[in-house]
Design a protein around this nucleic acid. Structure first.
Lengths: 162, 162
DNA sequence: GAGAGACTACTCGGATACAGTCTGTCCGAGTAAATCCGG
DNA sequence: CCGGATTTACTCGGACAGACTGTATCCGAGTAGTCTCTC
């Protein structure tokens, strides 16, 4: 069980988008070049973000993506779920019902204990992702990137942001 | 990102094995029948448990599996990792290094912030799984299964346990 | 009745097959800005 | 100089292909009990 690489891409793209000045858009092409990714496939991840309402898009030249909400309102969970889907990581097929000792027409009430435990762990994972926003990520990135590199990168980005 | 169904199977099988009297073994065939699963494929999951040292096996007639440790020492994480592997759910491909603004031969120190956050969530998930043992599961199952069904099931099991 | 050999039932591992998902590419339709062109 | 038509650059969506993983089946090798057969 490994998350798709699109999740990583989407998170890094959102980190860049959250540093964009108000009203500017950044194209898939620029985001792909900046991260060394295939443009066409990256666009699938960005489409996911768009369908989830996390980013706005504009068509035409100087079009592209921008965050639809302030960075402090976008959580890691939002982005992960936009790309990976909202389905739980554990699906219960209720195999206890196949027990040959179970009387016919017996109806189980409630979900089985195994599933409840797995779902609780899933929730712990989601809680952790929900607790971190893009502005948190921004602060961490500023702190750990050399100022010169940070400036160069955003000069590069702003040069391409319509 | 969804866990394989083998995880569910392994958990239910361990739940049964943890109710087995000391020294008895239960075969793949019995476990497969009890849960309505394909015997051959279920054996892959049980092989995983065996390789992880969670269960002991015996060959020959009246052979099969039994827990290698007392139920209170086997956690959900042990079982999930035995089947699903120990690799983290998020892999960092360090795509920040592809930034065209990064000077040549620049060497990043430490892992990137995105990965650290994702790994922290992964750890929260694993912590939750580590906190539940097979004996916890057993107590929950006893509590929520009708006593008659519980008895019938273990009569059925003991009838087939060598 | 005892011991040796054959038999049986099981685990284990490898080989194989099929389906679904992940990764990646390509192309056409639609849109908005920029450019061009005629008045 | 101005307004409409054309061009351009981009998003969006679908179609498609290849690789990998998950699911499932089958079979042979090895092992430990059981049965049989001989003495």
């Amino acid at each position: 069980m490994i998350l798709k690489s699109q999740v990583e891409w989407a998170l890094h793209c959102c980190a860049i988008l959250s540093g964009l000045p108000e009203g500017r858009y950044l194209s898939t092409k620029a985001l792909a070049e900046l991260h060394g990714l295939p443009k066409e496939y990256l666009s699938k991840a960005l489409q996911g973000l768009s369908q989830a309402g996390l980013v706005d898009t504009t068509l035409g030249p100087s079009g592209g993506y921008r965050l639809a909400k302030p960075p402090e309102q976008v959580t890691f969970l939002d982005i992960v779920e936009a790309v990976e889907g909202k389905t739980r990581t554990f699906v219960c097929n209720n195999i206890r019902a196949n027990n040959p000792c179970v009387p016919e027409n017996y109806c189980y009430s409630g979900s089985c204990a195994v599933a409840r435990i797995m779902w609780a762990a899933d929730e712990a994972w989601r809680d952790k992702l929900r607790s971190v926003t893009l502005s948190d990520l921004g602060r961490m990135l500023v702190q750990e990137t050399p100022p010169a590199l940070w400036k160069d990168t955003f000069d590069w980005v702003l040069d391409r942001a319509g």
